[in-house]
């Protein structure tokens, strides 16, 4: 598959709230690149349970799920994701404080999330193996009342 076309197709799908697993490109321990375009970040105003067979991951600027949010609300079960160059202004990393994962994949699951302060998965900030019940959401107040700079992230299914 043409890489340029692949990212473009995926970015469009995510912008529409649907993530399309690509055959042969994704799997456990092999994150799917969500691209670097800010258009791929979907604004999600509140906790929303994705459709059956999907999970979601959403970041907030404020603690405990307050403030502005962005994320991906329809990631297919079995799909790991990676997002580089997370920037609101195209230059600096995103300033965030908390994030949640909602699980509707059909069973309880542990999602391994790594957060990095740089754009390219080098400067590790925090990592969470988040256990989420099926049909539930788990919110992490990662900044413990403060904000942090989020430049990239990987979520291993």
């Amino acid at each position: 598959m043409n890489p340029t076309k692949r990212i473009s197709t995926l970015a469009m799908a995510v912008a529409l709230g649907v993530t399309v697993p690509l055959a042969g490109c994704a799997g456990v321990g092999e994150p799917e690149d969500l691209g670097t375009s800010q258009q791929a970040d979907t604004y999600i105003p509140s906790f929303t349970m994705p459709a059956s067979g999907y999970y979601s991951v959403v970041f907030y600027t404020g603690q405990y799920g307050s403030g502005d949010s962005f994320g991906w609300n329809a990631v297919g079960a079995g799909l790991s994701i990676a997002k580089a160059k997370m920037s609101g202004d195209g230059t600096n990393p995103r300033t965030v404080s908390s994030f949640y994962i909602c699980n509707n994949v059909g069973s309880d699951h542990v999602f391994h999330t790594n957060l990095y302060s740089d754009f390219n998965y080098v400067t590790f900030w925090k990592g969470y193996p988040v256990t989420v019940k099926n049909g539930a959401c788990h919110l992490i107040n990662a900044g413990v009342g403060s904000t942090f700079e989020l430049g990239s992230m990987k979520l291993f299914y």
Binding site: H138, L139, N141
Partner: peptide
């Protein structure tokens, strides 16, 4: 339900 809560974590259960 048995919940495993991360540090500074909340679980929302229907």
């Amino acid at each position: 339900d048995t919940l495993v809560l991360e540090p500074q974590g909340c679980e929302f259960v229907n």
